[in-house]
Write a protein that binds this DNA or RNA. Structure first.
Lengths: 280, 280
DNA sequence: CGGCCATTTGATAGTCATCAACTACCGTGG
DNA sequence: CCACGGTAGTTGATGACTATCAAATGGCCG
């Protein structure tokens, strides 16, 4: 495995087929070898806009980005953040246009891989599997977000995000100390979570005052991960419980399907039970 | 084009390749010909559960269904409703397991198409395009829902759903009178929209009292579509405006990308403007 | 006809958005 | 180097919007 310049490259979807080795150009390479162009971005730069033809995908080498979706009626919302190793613009379902805009949250660096190259690579089963897995992960992320925004209280949502960011941080650099730098503004966080920036700010302060975290501006350290997880699970304060899903009819078996965890903060604390279904 | 038994068949993804013609079995058929098994469902029946292997897809011939997603922590939420012509269990990204459960909202009927058949069909460009388009549409739906739940008020969300249901209704049967039967309970609607069933009930009553709709139990008629659209757009009461997306830096061009409308209620009323971006 | 569930409606309180200052930070330019 | 302006972030006061709790009503099925 070549170890390319940026540490994030080892997590990149294209890592195995990328020819931008810091070492030798990898002479006789069997399969496709990418020599992607590199682009530098400055804070606020738009990598691509929603609706524009998806001609290129952009593996993120360094920095970070946000994805902004605009609904048909003009409502905008941040749908996610990307960190080094993620691939910006990787459209699911072979969508011909970008489904959302991508904007650099800080000075960043991306590679530019033409979709034709991507298409070629996709015929290789191994790569294809990996790419599809990435897309599935993204989709799952959005679903978790939907549920969070749709049925969890503000503190839970924020706790979720913090734990997620910490997890991603750990997955990249090995850092286990909960130190992280928020590349995004309070407004971005608020948009993602369906809150206002004031609420986000207040909650961060509250979390800090209770000793869960330490924050100063965009510098944040998680002091009590278990406490945050507890809040995320809704065990704090108001005794939140997963909403029963008021369906009328009956369901066959009564076992609960345990969805595979792992996306957007692993389910450490067991679901607070209360999982009844109306019997037939 | 064969006209199969159910009227919804003409909208089915598999329509062109389906051999279940009410007429003759279509003797010498060139490409793949499906003879899908048919299944009857009763209210509340689980078509498939989240996490279970996705071995079959179920085109919905008659009736309706809801999709229920359970997050890793056990929170459940309705993520969408399906009407005749939709395909239940069509997993994006070739997911090997169902990403959500599907539950019949009423006595319904589905076809059962093995995924192997689906895979075979997917090699045909025409079918492949169509299938991907369906998946994209589903994904776009969820995004619109995310934005709605994340940043719109309760009345807007409900108005959106009603308009959407009416639109789907019209797309199937030609009925242009806004008469529709809500197959789902108030709780299901509430879950989808991130509200409580009481709020849904109250809003329906309020809509009715203002003459926008007429409701009696699950019987509903849209009297003033424009009024609902106006509420959806947020032009009523509180002067809602699409939230500015508080991003810090600059953006290159200043033109707004107009996303292709059409999913989950077309954008009839133009976005209320106010689309400024911070200059650099 | 009785019982059960879905739905409606009311009363009340909690959460969070909104409006409004105020403070901290950052980069620029004197 | 320090003053300045502007943006990001914090904090407070207030109230709208909705969730929550609690009945009451109405339908539907057996």
């Amino acid at each position: 495995m070549p170890d390319h310049g940026a540490p994030a490259c080892s997590l990149c979807l294209f890592h195995a087929v990328c020819g931008v080795a810091a070492t030798a150009p990898t002479p006789a390479s069997p399969g496709t070898r990418l020599r992607p162009e590199r682009l530098r971005l400055r804070t606020g730069d738009v990598v691509f806009r929603q609706g524009r033809p998806a001609l290129t995908v952009y593996p993120l080498r360094a920095g970070s980005a946000k994805h902004v979706y605009q609904s048909p009626l003009g409502w905008r919302q941040v749908t996610g953040f990307s960190l080094p190793g993620d691939v910006l613009g990787l459209e699911p379902h072979e969508a011909p246009q970008h489904g959302a805009a991508a904007i650099a949250l800080q000075d960043s660096e991306v590679c530019a891989v033409p979709v034709e190259s991507l298409r070629e690579l996709m015929v290789a089963p191994a790569f294809r599997i990996a790419a599809l897995a990435v897309m599935r992960r993204n989709a799952e992320r959005e679903r978790v977000l939907l549920v969070a925004v749709g049925s969890m209280k503000a503190p839970q949502r924020l706790a979720m995000l913090l734990l997620d960011l910490a997890g991603e941080q750990a997955r990249r650099h090995g850092r286990q100390d909960g130190t992280l730098t928020l590349a995004m503004s309070r407004a971005d966080i608020a948009s993602l979570l369906g809150l206002t920036l004031e609420t986000v700010s207040r909650l961060l302060s509250r979390f800090a005052s209770v000793g869960l975290i330490a924050v100063r501006q965009r510098r944040l350290r998680i002091i009590d991960p278990a406490g945050l997880a507890s809040i995320y699970a809704g065990l704090e304060g108001g005794a939140q419980r997963p909403a029963r899903e008021g369906n009328p009819g009956a369901e066959f078996a009564r076992d609960d399907d345990v969805p595979e965890p792992g996306v957007l903060v692993a389910a450490e604390s067991p679901p607070p039970a209360v999982r009844r279904e109306a019997a037939h």
